[in-house]
Design a protein around this nucleic acid. Structure first.
Lengths: 178, 178
DNA sequence: GTTTTAACGGAGTTGTTACTCCGGTTGTGC
DNA sequence: GCACAACCGGAGTAACAACTCCGTTAAAAC
């Protein structure tokens, strides 16, 4: 690969990361090209469609997410391991609008099975230890991550232990609307 | 107003309500007109812009929200009053994609001050009674409403009483990332 | 330094969406 | 029942976004 091609590829990827994080998936390819300082023809040669460009950016984000999940599993305490991953994932969502808006796209990407496997394990371990409410599946908790991006401790308090454990709401329901 | 004009206005409003609730704000005006069974010219005579149409739909939704807030205030128990409003609002968000996507637009609408006033009162009363965590402002709680649309009880458990009250997390932080 | 060859970028195409306009139609006052 | 005004709806416009193409430019091999 020629030196200028490599340099421009890096510029495009960096610009796309910034644009999609700040403006969400509806930012135009022209805008990305402008920020990268290249023509949009250059963007489309590297990435045949806008979707391919978005996938590349999301993939990098998911790589980081997988690292967080594995770090959580390495933690000895079940709650701390789960909470650490949950917070880290929420932080990622908080700093990246595209992650919110392209959730289903993420599920098509190759990193996803590994992340889901690790997340399931984190949840299973915490529930077995009795520190995570059991009326939620890993999928439910996955949906709460983006939600927790601004209020992580409120959500974590809500997830802790068992539903209604504080004894204040004996009529507490399942906690999930399906 | 002529009878046919009134009938078509109702059809358009109903169709817009359904379309925006199901498909979000990006549903095209053509799609709304098609569902209403009128030409899109008819839509644009009633509502000069798509935004005006959206505002009309959101207004009706906010009217319902205000009723919920006032019903919450009429409830004697501070927690039940707060929680009832919170659940009702979450339910509305769960059933209306446009409400999620046009949050800032809602704040421009005339119903908003009254809703905010009632919500502030609900929060203040619950916090004074010690049944709602005090590290959150009414605005914070407002942001949790859409979030709670699928997991109302998880969020309500998280909001109950004081942060970390279960004694499991002495290091519990503020619960809010600003 | 020359030649080759890959990469660049902007003009242009296609498709979509918000919005306008006007000829035809239909409800309503007299 | 008639005239007139209001209303209807679809053809047409403007703007914008994704994507293509090709003449020009510049890197790299010798």
């Amino acid at each position: 690969m020629r030196a200028d091609a490599q340099r421009n590829l890096d510029l495009v990827l960096g610009a796309a990361q910034e644009c999609f994080a700040e403006g969400g998936v509806d930012v135009s390819v022209d805008e990305v090209a402008r920020r990268a300082g290249v023509g949009h023809g250059t963007v489309f040669r590297r990435f045949p469609t806008k979707e391919a460009l978005l996938d590349a950016v999301l993939s990098k984000e998911l790589d980081r997410m997988l690292v967080f999940a594995q770090a959580g599993l390495a933690e000895a305490d079940p709650w701390e391991g789960f909470a650490a991953f949950f917070r880290a994932a929420a932080e990622s969502y908080a700093q990246n609008r595209a992650l919110h808006e392209a959730k289903e796209r993420c599920h098509e990407l190759p990193q996803m099975p590994a992340i889901e496997h690790a997340a399931r394990e984190l949840v299973r371990r915490a529930q077995k230890a009795g520190v995570l409410r059991e009326d939620l599946t890993p999928d439910d908790i996955g949906e709460l991550v983006p939600v927790a991006s601004r209020y992580p401790d409120v959500i974590l308090d809500g997830l802790r232990g068992q539903p209604g454990v504080r004894g204040l709401r004996p009529e507490a329901g399942a906690g999930v609307r399906r």
